[in-house]
Design a protein around this nucleic acid. Structure first.
Lengths: 226, 226
DNA sequence: GCCAAAAATGAAACGCGTTATAAGATTTAA
DNA sequence: TTAAATCTTATAACGCGTTTCATTTTTGGC
């Protein structure tokens, strides 16, 4: 790596760090390019040279988080169900580490064209793992004959995302999110699972509260103005 | 209604109509308040007097659509499953009538603070219907003992919304959306349904394609710039 | 050490959503 | 008819993300 590229990387890192911090402090809308430039000791056009847009800066931070998360995934369990839970758990724990940041980035992540490719990558990775998992279940006769592994995997992912969004818009708080996401995924698996797999899912479902609090606004989020 | 209120209502209607048309033509970002004011023969501050914000104008249009939709709901069928399908079908048909408008409004609908109340209203209405429906199924012994009607209803709604979002961001096209949403809801019901209800769900699942095309970008949407 | 290429800089500008201000039009009530 | 109240209007402004441009700084090869 040349000196030039090194300095570029330094700047990128500095900008990303400050951006992340400012988003946590002031929210997505509260992060202004002019202030970011100043606090990162950089000129405004430099932000655009290095990243291209405001969203791209945060996407880069999200991508970094995803990389760290992927590298830290614990070894998978042995039952189909345990394996299915590992990914969801890891994602949820990552969010719990800096909820303000992820919540403020959620709108952007969902809607910015910058993130289209990243969304597809994240989704494909999740779905590939779950599909493989469910394929094994099917081979072991523990999946309904009408169930297609990939389709079930996609629906599970959709269920998780929908719950995530409910949290992102402030509809539910983080503990509720944990329960609701788990519940949703289990409900979905309950239909397709057979044999021991099904028993495991049902057992889990029985441990979940049947009346978790919905619509209890914890802090309002999304698009703060100052 | 006083003359003053009449004229106000006229202006509101005119603005809403033009806004809707402009969104269809140029997308959400392509709708500018200055142009809207001009085309609706109104001053810019009037837009803010009457609505409060750009998003609020489109929210009002969405609310109007929701009102029309709710009023046009066909009589419900007789089986639990048929009843569950009616709402989803009506919503999907509404979208198919003006996909450009709804697609462009989706980001805004999901993320704007203006829509929080409306989201809750729509969600509560859907969930109330489905919950009542599932309660009847439970009373008839056609629901698993671990299944809570309201929770299943919420998961169904989440599944539908997640698929809707996938369409909104351009991940899937409208025909795929129809299949995927139906498939997701059926997968969810398959776990909780018992007896004749379960048989109906499974029968439906067997009719759905097991390999519907995912990620075939039809027209890119979300945040056009001109 | 010098010179061409590459990149960062400061300052100004653009279009956007939104708001303030002052003046003009319209409705209401007497 | 007139006066008060209400709303619309035109215009200009603000802060935002983003871009342009000319200038300066930094880098890499000789």
């Amino acid at each position: 790596m040349s000196l030039l590229d090194e300095h570029k990387a330094e700047r990128r890192a500095r900008i990303g760090k400050v951006a992340r911090q400012l988003v946590v402090e002031r929210g997505y809308a509260g992060l202004t390019m002019r202030e970011l430039a100043q606090k990162a000791r950089v000129a405004v056009p430099t932000l655009y040279n290095l990243f291209g847009s405001k969203d791209a800066i945060l996407v880069a931070e999200l991508a970094e988080s995803a990389r760290v998360l992927a590298a830290s995934l614990p070894p998978i369990g042995d039952s189909f169900f345990a394996r299915a839970m590992v990914g969801f758990d890891a994602g949820t724990r990552a969010i719990e580490e800096s909820p303000e940041f992820y919540r403020e980035c959620m709108n952007m992540f969902l809607t910015s064209p910058e993130t289209a490719e990243m969304r597809r990558r994240v989704e494909d990775a999740h779905i590939a793992v779950m599909t493989a998992n469910l394929r094994a279940a099917k081979a072991a006769g523990q999946l309904a004959d009408w169930a297609t592994p990939e389709i079930v995997a996609r629906h599970m992912f959709a269920q998780y995302m929908a719950t995530l969004i409910a949290w992102g818009v402030g509809e539910i708080d983080l503990p509720t999110f944990r329960i609701a996401a788990l519940s949703g995924v289990c409900h979905l698996l309950a239909g397709a699972a057979r044999g021991p797999f099904a028993a495991e899912v049902e057992a889990k479902l029985r441990t979940l509260p049947t009346q978790y609090t919905h619509s209890p606004p914890d802090k309002k989020a999304t698009r703060r103005s100052t």
